[in-house]
């Protein structure tokens, strides 16, 4: 794919892929569009994030492993931000340290669900860390594990957010 002007940091993908060959995800084809069965306001929603957010007291993500941490954590969707912490060093947490919602909008999602603007939330949200150096392994293990957990939690729609 060509680097286009809409990119915020043109050339970044190529630079990283040159330095760490094979570490960047490139898909040849688009995933077919899956239609919602019900409107968003009636669909049970979950949230999946690569922000490394996890409940305090759970095993911290291994942020210094040379090829990455391919595990995930369940984050109860009724958690207070004060009950959560971030274990990831690959993105600026200057905003999240003051208001976690800038990267993991757990309070906003709960408010919107309580107002009925969006559907009910799953019991858990899901979190992992990015900067894994083997995207094929990530797709084969972590992505499949999270997908299975998301389905088990009854999600009908998913909001995915990178960090």
């Amino acid at each position: 794919m060509t680097e286009t002007s809409r990119q915020l940091r043109p050339g970044l993908w190529g630079t990283i892929n040159e330095r760490y060959p094979g570490s960047m995800i490139t898909k040849a084809d688009l995933v077919p569009l899956a239609r919602l069965r019900r409107p968003v306001s009636q669909s049970r929603l979950t949230f999946v994030s690569s922000a490394g957010v996890q409940p305090k007291g759970t095993l911290p993500f291994d942020v210094v492993h040379p090829v990455g941490d391919y595990s995930f954590r369940r984050v109860p969707s009724d958690s207070k931000p004060s009950e959560l912490e971030i274990h990831q060093i690959k993105y600026p947490t200057v905003g999240a340290n003051r208001d976690l919602n800038v990267i993991f909008p757990i309070e906003r999602l709960r408010e919107l669900a309580e107002e009925g603007a969006i559907g009910p939330l799953t019991p858990n949200f899901f979190s992992f860390i990015g900067y894994n150096m083997d995207p094929e392994r990530l797709e084969r293990t972590l992505a499949e594990d999270i997908a299975e957990a998301v389905v088990q939690d009854g999600a009908e729609a998913v909001l995915l957010a990178p960090a």
Binding site: M1, T4, R6, Q7, L8, L12, W13, M24, I25, T26, K27, D29, L30, V31, P32, L33, A34, A51, Y91, P92, T93, V94, G95, A96, R98, D99, N101, V102, I103, P105, R108, L160, A161, P162, A163
Partner: peptide, 26 residues
């Protein structure tokens, strides 16, 4: 990154990394 990974749908927030839902208290 988004164009390379080809998700079926995406919203592009032109913000600093770690701030995809905006700024604190907004």
């Amino acid at each position: 990154m988004t164009e390379h990974s080809k998700p079926p749908r995406a919203v592009l927030a032109p913000f600093m990394m770690g701030h995809h839902f905006g700024v604190p208290f907004h």
